[in-house]
Design a protein around this nucleic acid. Structure first.
Lengths: 143, 143
DNA sequence: ATAGATGCAAATGTTTTGCAGGAAA
DNA sequence: TTTCCTGCAAAACATTTGCATCTAT
């Protein structure tokens, strides 16, 4: 049984919130968990559709909102304004290639602590941040 | 004559690009230059309209694109997805209060050089970045 | 005279909502 | 059998485009 842990996490969340266990939600979870990287709502919908032609895009969007609330997905928005989803793992920020769209993750504890100092300095209570570096990746520099 | 320098910069840009000097472009420039901070297309349109009821929002959007190309404005997008414009000045990033919408600018050379190192490490040629800190500002922490 | 600008209306593209029928508890 | 879901169509939303008309050069 693939994605056992996540399926159970979803079950628990749905039960706790008096929501229903449906075929669509399971199907979307499976497709989403097979994704490596950052997928847009539209692209995810197309992949779901390949295997489950009856599922509508409305359901995909609504389901991803639930997954985000359940901690099974994280919503991100980059320069193009599309909503993308990723599987949660350690905190990180992103490098984005503006030519091929490649997204690479990075983590820098020095930047993290600098952010805390800055927020402190301006009297802000920090909730979250967005830090994206845009450029050309190795493969795209020749062009 | 207010905004003399910017008016001339605009004139020069329009001439160089065989574009036309129009009342609308001057009017929008004046309203924009009076803005302190970061203004959305919609809000800018409303302020332009107060003084120039005949100017359409299409013209405001089109004109701001020209101003950006002419280096008279910079386009920014924060969490709410709206396009905002600011008057160019030294490089900086932003703290955004998610309750009142206040936007504060900050600059941190340590973060800047860390970014360069990271881009380097991943083989990216860095073009630009976006760094935003979201939280509650001093005034909004009680609520 | 002519290239370019304007303003309205309509289109765009992604995401959300209304609603009637359908499925899970 | 009630509450929640689904899928379609339509709406929402900020921004862009088409086009006939107007204006700066």
């Amino acid at each position: 049984m693939p994605h056992e842990v996540e399926r159970e996490a979803l079950s628990r969340y749905l039960e706790d919130h008096k929501l229903k266990q449906t075929k669509q939600r399971e199907a979307i979870l499976d497709v989403f968990l097979e994704v490596t990287g950052h997928i847009s709502g539209d692209e995810l919908f197309r992949r779901v559709r390949e295997r489950h032609p009856h599922i509508g895009f409305t359901t995909v969007y609504r389901t991803m909102k639930i997954f985000c609330e359940a901690g099974l997905a994280i919503e991100r928005t980059f320069e193009d304004g599309l909503t993308r989803y990723e599987i949660p793992h350690e905190h990180h920020d992103h490098l984005v290639c503006v030519r091929c769209g490649r997204i690479v993750e990075f983590e820098c504890s020095m930047i993290e602590s600098a952010q805390d100092r800055i927020a402190d300095e301006y009297g802000f209570r920090l909730l979250r941040h967005r830090h994206e570096l845009y450029g050309h990746c190795t493969d795209c520099q020749g062009r």
